[in-house]
Amino acid sequence: MANKYVTEEAQKQIGKAGEARTIEVERGAIRRFAEAIGDANPAFNSEREARHTRFGGMIAPPTFGRSLSAAIPDVKLDMGESFRGLDGGSDWEYFEPIRPGDRITVQTKIADLRESAGRLGPMVFITTETTYTNQFGQVCAIQRSTAIRY
């Protein structure tokens, strides 16, 4: 059965990338994020204590990248104005820690667009992939998130 919303034309948006942004990571932003999620781990809060760890200083908590405000590419689907949205979840892969003072380049692309039949009609699954790269060109993390529209 042909898709109602994720048409062949709509699928051409797969691979579309949002604007890359480079953001300097402030130590205070890491602390505020750790405080907001209620994580007292010294690695995320105290330079003095974190110096004794194998990282030699503070690092960011695993989901800190969300605060770096990636530009999400606009997905155009012929669903009108009245669709509802849900956050389906996220998959993260970690390669290098994000540290205070790092200049992180964040870029998000549309990784996948799918449609399936749900109880309330067709459901569209939009998967975005965000890459966090530091000033040395090392990929620190890759985040794949799924948004649902119905």
Binding site: I37, P62, T63, R66, D91
Partner: peptide
């Protein structure tokens, strides 16, 4: 949802400890 993602991140970084490394979180 992202806050719950962060809570589960804390579960895993607490478990990994200073000497471990969280490689994937879904």
């Amino acid at each position: 949802g992202a806050l719950k993602n962060a809570f589960l991140g804390q579960l895993m970084t607490d478990f990994a400890g200073d000497l471990g490394w969280l490689r994937k979180l879904s």
